[in-house]
Amino acid sequence: MLIGFDLLDRQIIDRDGAPVGKVDDVELTYDDTGTPHVTALLLGQAALGDRIGGLLGRCIAGTARRLSGSLDRPPMRISVDLIDHVDSAVNLTVNRALLQDPPLETWLRDHLIQRIPGATHES
């Protein structure tokens, strides 16, 4: 498996097929022999911006950090133990409700969408 081709930028879905996010970056850990291993998937626009780099990347990461409400919040991290298998998407073994909610989604839901009539209505 190639990290760049098969893992990065794939859609992550939970055990019921609901979208969780993209593999915006990966966390590498070196073992005793100095071989790197992927230990976690990193999600969120801050991680994405840092990966893109340059002026544009800094803008994306900066905006994302500002919108998340705290400037030093680490990116959302999903341990590789939670990966069931990788096909056209990265399939997790858990339900999305067990993972942390993205801060922007929570903020927009509570301050904007939830206040409009019909937000909880199944259309």
């Binding site: 859609q11 992550i12 609901a18 979208p19 969780v20 996010g21 993209k22 915006d24 999600l43 626009q45 994405l48 993205p102 922007l104 989604e105 927009l108 839901r109 904007l112 969408i113 939830q114 409009i116 019909g118 937000a119 909880t120 209505h121 199944e122 259309s123």
Partner: peptide, 20 residues
């Protein structure tokens, strides 16, 4: 592009960023 939840098959509160 960002991997957010989207679509009309969800309630708007479950796809807040999409509806925004």
């Amino acid at each position: 592009y960002f991997g957010w939840t989207w679509g009309k098959l969800r309630r708007p509160r479950n796809a807040a960023r999409f509806h925004t």
